[in-house]
Amino acid sequence: MIDTVVAPPASEGESQRGFLFALSAYFLWGLLPFFLKAVAHIPATEVVAHRVLWSVPVAGVVLLLLRRTAELKRAMGSPRTLMMAAATAAIITLNWGIYAWAIATDRALDTALGYYINPLVSIAMAAVLLREKLSRLQIAAVALAAFAVLVLTVEGGGVPWISLVLAFSFAIYGFFRKTLPIGPSQGFFLEVLIMSIPALAYIFWLQWTGQGHFRLDQPGNLALLVACGPASAVPLLLYAFGAKLLRYATIGIMQYIAPSMVFLIAVFIFKEPFSSERAVAFALIWMALALYTWPMLRALRVRAAR
């Protein structure tokens, strides 16, 4: 996912378009585990390298079609902006890598939990780093999430590190992405462009040593690896376009679509074990999210009544 500024919609028509863009993005993210299962026989590091590399032409074509290259040129001339983009690119690449590896190793439930926890981690970070005052509902939500993590720690005999790494890495990415002085689509292109340098070097090394799966005699693998680009870039760009046209409360509620889809896919299609302890932990998280989301729902109802 990608962070962006959410502005109030200018018209009902734009709001509807924004909703469709955002809904499409979350739906595609919800289906991403199927694609990652299809490439599960390929090491996650190689999959991520191709996700980065093949995202560059997709994002580049979108920028050219929208004629948004001027801001990108200014950003590429700023060493500070390039360093900040390199940092955010490294963080989101780590997030992608852990996610791909978790799906490939039958831990989709852990990824769903991570993205359920993510908004609660974000508000906790805002309280610690930005000294933002939390409401009672937000404090209760964070406390419930922490208790859920404790339940999973006791149940699994260790900290649920996959969920926590995904939640914290994306929260940190969102925090620093807001400081990047460039638009969301331009910022995404700059991030993947920067990461394409080490990604391309890694892919060349894999091919040179005979470990790579990007081979003409393996057309299935070749097609899957090229498809990593659209599978990564398209939902990110759709989200960026949708978020610009929707209110923050709407986006805040819609963000649960993808992890909910992943949860259902993990339990009913991938048949991952769902113990009673995990059920308790997820119930606690859902209660926490209900507390977190209630003010957003109330705000939407107030606006709708006007």
Results as ranks from 00 to 15, higher is better:
residue 101 W to E: 04
residue 89 A to T: 04
residue 132 E to S: 01
residue 87 A to K: 07
residue 142 V to K: 09
residue 109 L to P: 05
residue 123 I to M: 00
residue 173 Y to P: 02
residue 161 W to P: 09
residue 185 S to P: 02
residue 149 V to E: 11
residue 102 A to Y: 10
residue 156 G to C: 04
residue 125 M to W: 04
residue 133 K to H: 14
residue 95 N to E: 05
residue 134 L to C: 03
residue 124 A to E: 01
residue 167 A to V: 04
residue 180 L to H: 03
residue 130 L to C: 08
residue 181 P to K: 00
residue 179 T to D: 11
residue 163 S to V: 13
residue 88 T to S: 09
residue 154 V to E: 12
residue 123 I to S: 01
residue 184 P to T: 05
residue 140 A to K: 07
residue 144 L to N: 01
residue 88 T to L: 02
residue 164 L to Q: 07
residue 120 L to Q: 00
residue 89 A to M: 07
residue 86 A to M: 06
residue 87 A to T: 15
residue 127 A to E: 01
residue 138 Q to F: 00
residue 144 L to F: 14
residue 104 A to D: 05
residue 138 Q to G: 03
residue 130 L to H: 02
residue 121 V to N: 00
residue 110 D to F: 11
residue 162 I to T: 12
residue 103 I to E: 12
residue 187 G to Y: 10
residue 186 Q to Y: 08
residue 178 K to Y: 03
residue 141 A to D: 13
residue 136 R to P: 01
residue 117 I to T: 07
residue 105 T to Y: 14
residue 156 G to K: 14
residue 132 E to I: 01
residue 187 G to K: 03
residue 137 L to D: 13
residue 115 Y to T: 00
residue 114 G to V: 12
residue 153 T to K: 11
residue 151 V to I: 15
residue 185 S to C: 10
residue 89 A to F: 05
residue 121 V to S: 04
residue 183 G to P: 08
residue 123 I to P: 11
residue 99 Y to A: 10
residue 183 G to E: 14
residue 106 D to T: 13
residue 105 T to W: 10
residue 105 T to A: 11
residue 157 G to P: 05
residue 122 S to P: 05
residue 103 I to R: 12
residue 170 F to L: 13
residue 106 D to E: 13
residue 153 T to I: 05
residue 115 Y to I: 01
residue 160 P to R: 01
residue 128 V to N: 03
residue 121 V to C: 02
residue 106 D to L: 10
residue 138 Q to N: 02
residue 154 V to G: 10
residue 129 L to Y: 12
